[in-house]
Amino acid sequence: TTLHFDLDGKKLQYTGVSEEIARLVEELKRRGVDLKEIVRILEELLK
């Protein structure tokens, strides 16, 4: 799965993300978590 974000005018793309992580990101968005925080979490998970 590939995730795309537009953060402060920067286009971020994460490829090869598992379905689980993609679902987690969608859930965080639904809960109103700040996009910067979501990206920070995502980068930690993908290390």
Rank of each mutant, 00 (worst) to 15 (best):
T1M: 14
T1S: 09
T1L: 15
T1Q: 14
T1E: 13
T1I: 15
T2C: 07
T2G: 04
T2F: 03
T2Y: 02
T2L: 04
T2K: 05
L3P: 02
L3H: 03
L3C: 04
L3N: 01
L3A: 00
L3M: 04
L3W: 00
H4Q: 11
H4I: 15
H4A: 06
H4M: 09
F5E: 02
F5W: 01
F5I: 09
F5M: 04
F5S: 01
F5H: 01
D6K: 01
D6T: 06
D6R: 00
D6V: 06
D6F: 09
L7H: 03
L7A: 02
D8N: 05
D8F: 03
D8Q: 04
G9N: 03
G9D: 06
G9S: 03
G9K: 01
G9Q: 02
G9R: 00
G9F: 01
K10H: 12
K10L: 13
K10D: 10
K11E: 14
K11Y: 08
K11D: 11
K11C: 10
K11P: 06
K11L: 04
K11R: 08
K11S: 11
L12F: 08
L12R: 04
Q13H: 15
Q13E: 15
Y14T: 00
Y14E: 00
Y14C: 02
Y14I: 04
Y14G: 01
Y14P: 00
Y14K: 01
T15N: 11
T15Y: 08
G16M: 05
G16H: 12
G16Y: 05
G16C: 06
G16S: 05
V17R: 00
V17A: 02
V17M: 03
V17Y: 00
S18I: 05
S18Y: 02
S18F: 03
S18H: 06
S18W: 02
S18L: 04
E19F: 10
E19K: 08
E19I: 14
E19L: 09
E20M: 05
E20R: 06
E20C: 06
E20A: 10
E20Y: 05
I21T: 11
I21P: 02
I21R: 02
I21G: 06
A22R: 08
A22E: 08
A22D: 03
A22G: 08
R23M: 14
R23T: 14
R23V: 13
R23P: 02
L24Q: 15
L24V: 12
L24H: 15
L24T: 14
V25C: 04
V25Y: 03
V25I: 09
V25A: 04
V25K: 00
V25D: 00
V25R: 00
V25S: 03
E26D: 14
E26V: 09
E26W: 07
E26A: 09
E27L: 07
E27V: 09
E27H: 12
E27G: 08
E27Q: 11
L28M: 14
L28N: 08
L28R: 05
K29W: 10
K29M: 14
K29E: 09
K29P: 04
K29F: 13
R30F: 15
R30E: 13
R30H: 15
R30Q: 15
R31Y: 07
R31L: 13
R31D: 13
R31T: 14
R31K: 13
G32L: 11
G32A: 13
G32Q: 14
V33W: 06
V33E: 13
D34Q: 11
D34S: 10
D34F: 06
L35A: 10
L35C: 04
L35K: 06
L35S: 09
K36R: 15
K36Q: 13
E37G: 05
E37S: 09
E37Y: 06
E37W: 06
E37F: 06
E37I: 10
E37T: 10
I38N: 00
I38R: 03
I38D: 00
I38F: 01
I38K: 00
I38Y: 01
V39N: 01
V39L: 12
V39F: 03
V39G: 00
V39T: 03
V39H: 03
V39M: 04
R40K: 12
R40Q: 14
R40V: 10
R40A: 12
R40S: 12
R40M: 11
I41G: 05
I41E: 10
I41H: 08
I41M: 10
I41S: 07
L42E: 00
L42V: 07
L42C: 04
E43D: 15
E43R: 03
E43C: 02
E43F: 03
E43S: 05
E43G: 05
E44F: 09
E44T: 11
E44Q: 12
E44M: 11
L45K: 14
L45C: 05
L45Q: 11
L45P: 03
L45W: 08
L45H: 11
L45F: 06
L46R: 03
L46M: 08
L46T: 05
L46H: 05
L46S: 03
L46F: 05
L46D: 03
K47T: 13
K47M: 12
K47L: 13
K47N: 14
K47A: 13
